[in-house]
Nucleic acid binder design. Sequence first.
DNA 1: CTACACTGCGAGCGCTGTACGCGGAAAAGG
DNA 2: CCTTTTCCGCGTACAGCGCTCGCAGTGTAG
Lengths: 227, 227
Amino acid sequence: MPESRSIWLRRERSGRGPTPEHGRDRIAAAAIDLADAGGLDAVSTRRVAAAIGAGATSLYRYVRSRDELLELMLDTATGELDLTAPVTGDWRGDLLVLAHDLRAVYRRHPWLLDLAQGQAPLTPRSVAFLEYALAILRDVQAPGGAKMEAIALATGLVAQLTRLEVAAGRSSADWQAAQVEYLTAIVAEGRHPNLSAAIAAPGGAGDGEDVLDRVLPRVVAGVLGIA
Amino acid sequence: MPESRSIWLRRERSGRGPTPEHGRDRIAAAAIDLADAGGLDAVSTRRVAAAIGAGATSLYRYVRSRDELLELMLDTATGELDLTAPVTGDWRGDLLVLAHDLRAVYRRHPWLLDLAQGQAPLTPRSVAFLEYALAILRDVQAPGGAKMEAIALATGLVAQLTRLEVAAGRSSADWQAAQVEYLTAIVAEGRHPNLSAAIAAPGGAGDGEDVLDRVLPRVVAGVLGIA
DNA sequence: CTACACTGCGAGCGCTGTACGCGGAAAAGG
DNA sequence: CCTTTTCCGCGTACAGCGCTCGCAGTGTAG
């Protein structure tokens, strides 16, 4: 009987032998601290091991690969979402509340934007999130696959919005300087009138209200085929 | 006078000295071939160097860092977009044509989905893309910043849709098997009725028509504040 | 109490991105 | 023409990465 491929189907402690000195939650917390401070690149197996006071390669007793460590982090961070609010029946409103909460988590842990880009791996808490979002859409008339796609696109939208938001702070000053330098040259060259105009124009997007509030319901309605 | 920070402001050939044996385009093409075959991880400086028949570290005569190499790749791939179609005045239609073309490029080069997730770096061809998209929106009444945001969200939407699409092929069989194994256990446990129902339900999202066609105009209209 | 299964860990492998300095070649200056 | 300057290609080297393996020790099951 081969050991399960998913970490969530393996017991954390397995009876026999000495008691493990660390726990998945402590490991995930240490890794998240590193990622919050220095991005995903700062999360190396050795550094996480050092952070919990373990030997260089001892982490591999708890985790099969670095990817599984990232899965642990994703699960723990997803746990910061509040899924206790009862579903009201107004799916647009409920979904917006959830989306705002998700955006707050993304802001707190920007490395999630690098992690959850594709289809997110299934973890206990990400499954709970999915279940909750589907509960919000329970009374909406649409096939299950469409709802799943709507949720994936909605979280993708929140992620993309947050990326644009935190892009300024995440990239290095040197990188930004290079971009500005090139953009200046582009505009000075004069061959891109629309771009020049767009940059010169003052405008933020919204008149103070939130783009997320305006766009997200339309995305979901669009996917689900609701007028 | 310090050398420019952006590769696009540095001449490829600089008069003095021996003629370089390679060109940026050849390097980018070789790197793209590697990425198409094995993803971004397959693009290592040594491998690209070997592919063009150069010494292990000779690439650094053409590129300051691996990130600049990725910038070269992004620029070349963006060049596959067709920006020659005249703007018709129907911005929804024109934008959809452009979005479909972008999706085709993403399908051809899935590594772009890992690369262009945040704010894309400015390159000659990505700037041309921006200029073209802004030309499509020229007659739309909205501040420049809002248009930029709309374009960023639109490309993000195309990227997310393509990610969902190619997710099946990109991840390893082992990874998928692990996900399926865990999902089966989740459903069997019975604590997630909505998720179980959604999986059991047959349904794709659209009745044959394209989700992109339905959602993208709504996103753009939502950002720009158009009813 | 024995035997086994499991623990933490050090050593080590192959790979990565990148800095540095060498020898030689090509173009500029006289 | 020759000299000088500037750049090219590359070999070497370094720190860090994910990960494997085997050893010594420890806790639990029988």
